[in-house]
């Protein structure tokens, strides 16, 4: 048994988890189950990042997506009514057209993607932390500062939008 084989098995498990949970998010009627499956998808994508040798990105992924975004979305689920409805009203009216567009697109892009034969498991020695930090704070320092302004703007915007005028 070699480590390569372990990598392939892990990849298969994670891929099945991602695709299965993603389909579940779209098709399940219970919004709570959708939210949980979304968090599960995020965790599996984090696992993919670890397979690719990007453990810092994986940690950020769990910290931001599972710890913050899923919790926010759960708050959204709690604050809006989720009553049971007839299954006919579950999808929007244009769902056949959407399926017609999406299915060839997805299959096409996946086929193009499969044509890349390079090894993807070139794990950098000593982790990706140093290289990532150097890149962000040296080459991308200005975009990084702009991103913090974006976060501030989003925070203020969200507060203004949901504030009640007493």
């Amino acid at each position: 048994m070699s480590y390569d084989l372990v990598g392939v098995i892990l990849f298969a498990v994670l891929a099945i988890g991602i695709v299965g949970a993603g389909i579940g998010v779209v098709l399940l009627d219970r919004i709570t189950a959708s939210a949980l499956l979304m968090a599960f998808t995020f965790l599996n994508v984090a696992g993919m990042f670890v397979l690719l040798g990007a453990e810092t990105i994986a940690a950020f992924q769990v910290l931001i997506y599972v710890g913050a975004i899923t919790v926010l979305i759960l708050y959204g689920v709690m604050f809006t009514p989720q009553r049971e409805r007839a299954y006919a009203l579950f999808f929007q009216t244009q769902w056949p057209w959407a399926a017609l567009v999406v299915a060839p697109l997805g299959i096409g892009v996946a086929l193009v993607g499969l044509s890349f034969r390079d090894r993807a498991t070139a794990v950098p020695a000593g982790g990706d932390l140093d290289a990532l930090a150097t890149s962000i704070f040296r080459d991308f320092a200005f975009p990084f500062e702009v991103a913090s302004v974006l976060l501030l703007a989003a925070m203020i915007g969200a507060i203004v939008l949901v504030r009640r005028d007493d």
Partner: peptide, 20 residues
Amino acid sequence: LNIGLLYLATLGSMTVLGIV
């Protein structure tokens, strides 16, 4: 792990999800 502290912070943030 060379991201040990980040890993701990990450796991700490997952508890919120379970409690909510």
